[in-house]
């Protein structure tokens, strides 16, 4: 994946997380809806944040099989 795509995914995920929390605080959406949004968005946000810090440019490698 390109870095720009990852960055976009991160901002989209972060926006969902923040907006859901704000809407819950204002009492517009109930907790289950807020939780459902966060359960989907939070893992994606975290991983894409990490990924855009240091995305690998190489392909795969063989796994560790001992010495």
């Amino acid at each position: 994946m390109k870095r720009t795509t990852v960055v976009r995914i991160f901002w989209a995920g972060a926006a969902v997380c923040v907006v859901a929390s704000v809407l819950f605080f204002m009492g517009i959406i109930p907790l289950p809806v807020c939780a459902a949004l966060l359960i989907v968005a939070f893992p994606v946000t975290v991983l894409s944040l990490f990924f855009c810090w240091m995305a690998g440019e190489f392909g795969g490698d063989i796994p560790f099989i001992g010495y």
Partner: peptide, 10 residues
């Protein structure tokens, strides 16, 4: 989180 990452070939 700051390490270079990829997915193993297998």
């Amino acid at each position: 989180s700051f390490k270079t990452t990829w997915i193993p070939k297998t």
